[in-house]
Nucleic acid binder design. Structure first.
Lengths: 215, 215
DNA sequence: CAAAATTAATCAAACGATTGATTGATATAA
DNA sequence: TTATATCAATCAATCGTTTGATTAATTTTG
């Protein structure tokens, strides 16, 4: 059945995503992946060409929907710059918390100094998101919503970096927060709204004159 | 000569730190490390026992000095809470920019989901720094310097996360900033003061009532 | 329709390459 | 001599990938 074949590929992608995330690209051997997925080793090459092809297939499965989401927010002319930014933060936090183990994988590969075809491709795709945020910040400065002398690039680094820190250093942030950040219930019910609230208040305080922030 | 032997070990550690940082733990083969260092492969095991022993030797060489520095700032009763925090940021930025390739290495290991003796050791040491910052923030709230309802844990995530993002995703941040963040001259003269200025203004806006921030 | 031909899917086994580590010989120094 | 340092050569293990055979599914043909 055609349905079954698709499900099998999807199943491999699901398992491989988990194995890659837990062990890193090098640490996830094709034997381990195929073993966990319950398929023959050769199937990985049969379906995806190579280990790198498998990785890219996982990656590309993830990225497309979020980028169009971001772009739709950016192009919505009925929203203020701040509302756009706030919505981006909400959507971004929703997004990465769901796929947090994959995010760790991405960041591990992107942090390599030595550029590879793989890291270049990842960088290229992530830059789309960066530029989308930048566009909103630029626009906000131009229309007077945000202060003129803000550091746009560093703001972007804060948006992505703060979330990355919580997700990518689970042992540290779990100790810090007093809960296991890998616990999905805690993540969903407590941490996610907390990060959203914090990020918006932090950025609002920096970007614009808002007396509500001052308590 | 005894001096020469020490220098040789130090030289191996220097080179290995660079190679590890560029290629990751798995990607840095003992052949590559020994080749770059210009020593025989067997010398790595001769001096450090194993590849992991070499890694730990690099790590332990680094950790001690910065922690006492942080603690001295925290215990200085002549400074305001804000001045302490600002000084921590300055010292922290100075520190990690100097050792940025090592920082990438640390973060890559800490981001592993699977805990190892190595990652536990790194986590334990990094937590000391986290708690030192937390102490300053707690104190600032208690003495009225900072708002009462700030999210202390998330502030810490922002401090470490923002810097990590710039340093750990060099390809992205280089594109974003329009300069190679691995260029030491740019790092020292431009980026370092820029990060310091940004971080302090960002946190001041969030933590305390300061009209100077509003332009 | 059924038999034959073709294509797709699956598998165990093996490939060459590379890995971290070890060996035993040799050189150097105390 | 004794202890330390250095080396080329080699070890077993593991890596990602390929192979050739086999089975299952689909299409073509008579």
């Amino acid at each position: 059945m055609d349905k079954e074949k698709i499900d099998k590929k999807e199943h491999i992608l699901d398992v491989a995503e988990k194995v890659f995330s837990d062990n890193g690209f090098d640490g996830a051997s094709t034997r381990l992946i195929s073993g966990e997925a319950g398929v023959n080793m050769a199937m990985l090459n049969y379906y995806f060409g190579s280990k790198e092809g498998l990785f890219l297939a996982i990656f590309e499965r993830k990225i497309s929907s979020f980028q169009t989401l971001l772009q739709n927010i950016g192009n919505d002319e009925s929203m203020t710059s701040w509302d756009k930014l706030a919505l981006c933060i909400d959507k971004y936090v929703d997004r990465i918390i769901v796929n947090n183990c994959f995010q760790k994988l991405i960041n591990r590969e992107v942090s390599m100094t030595k550029r590879t075809e793989l890291s270049d491709k990842i960088t290229e795709i992530l830059m789309v998101n960066v530029l989308e945020i930048k566009k909103i910040l630029d626009e906000g400065i131009k229309n007077g919503s945000f202060f003129k002398d803000i550091d746009i690039q560093m703001v972007i680094a804060t948006i992505f970096g703060t979330k990355n820190y919580v997700i990518n250093t689970p042992n540290i942030s779990s100790q810090m927060l007093g809960h296991d950040v890998r616990d999905e219930k805690f993540l969903e019910e407590k941490l996610k709204p907390r990060i959203k609230t914090y990020m918006k208040r932090l950025l609002k305080a920096y970007l614009m004159n808002d007396n509500d922030n001052k308590k």
